[in-house]
């Protein structure tokens, strides 16, 4: 029996030889990560859970063909991305305008992107990622991206897929992926900036107080 902390390769080999428990350990290791990816694509808990189920069934069925040229999670994420893209294609709403890669961020690609996010609101990166309001604003911004833009953001930022893998999944060229990702990031920054600008700021009087309290033992 494989130990619970065995690496992916060991678990995959054990699962290939019929060890169901090893496959379950892989499932438990990646269930939430796959869910996060699917939720990023689909924005619905139930749809995302369906994709998690389908992804692992597909993985198990194709496990004998998995030769380990890429890591298990890259393979798993690629399958998940394909399932999500298929799902979106099947359920495509007629939003052709939104599918135009260049729309939304007011178009000037030469403009400086540095001031796109209000750094003063975000504080340091460490503080920003701990702040639930900011994370909710991020999720809300993702919601307003077109399906294609959201797909490239999720595949790249969440799954870390290469441009080649993304191009394969979206059935387009690497150049198109580059362009789409560029515009998607710009759009995302714009949407996020709009939301962060509306975060309430406390009055100047009370501003120092929480810092003082936070420093107390």
């Amino acid at each position: 029996m494989v130990p619970t902390d065995a690496d992916d390769h060991t678990l995959v080999e054990a699962a290939k030889s019929g060890d169901r428990r090893a496959f379950q350990l892989l499932f438990e290791r990646y269930e939430r990560k796959v869910y996060a990816v699917a939720y990023g694509f689909l924005r619905s808990q139930e749809d995302a859970l369906d994709v998690v189920q389908d992804a692992f069934i597909k993985v198990f069925r194709y496990l004998p063909n998995f030769e380990g040229q890429s890591s298990f999670y890259t393979w798993l994420y690629r399958i998940t991305a394909n399932l999500c893209i298929d799902y979106l294609r099947r359920n495509t709403r007629k939003k052709d305008v939104e599918f135009d890669d260049k729309l939304r961020h007011d178009g000037d690609p030469e403009s400086s992107p540095v001031d796109a996010l209000p750094a003063s609101v975000l504080g340091s990166p460490g503080e920003a990622v701990e702040n639930k309001e900011i994370l909710t604003a991020v999720e809300d911004s993702l919601k307003y991206l077109s399906d294609k833009h959201r797909a490239v953001i999720v595949m790249r930022e969440l799954q870390g897929l290469s441009y080649a893998d993304m191009a394969k999944a979206m059935n387009c060229s690497k150049g198109t992926i580059m362009s789409r990702l560029f515009h998607a990031r710009r759009n995302m920054q714009k949407l996020l900036r709009e939301r962060l600008e509306h975060l309430p700021e406390p009055s100047e009087d009370g501003a120092e107080e929480p810092q003082t309290e936070a420093a107390l033992p």
Binding site: S120, V121, G123, E127, A128, E130, N131, K132, L199, P200, E201, P202, S203, E204, G206, A207, E208, E209, P210, Q211, E213, A214
Partner: peptide, 19 residues
């Protein structure tokens, strides 16, 4: 400018700690 911003980020945490 930074002080109210930090306060906005830290306020929920400090309130939680106080409770």
């Amino acid at each position: 400018m930074l002080a109210p911003v930090l306060a906005a980020i830290l306020a929920p945490m400090t309130a939680f700690a106080a409770v």
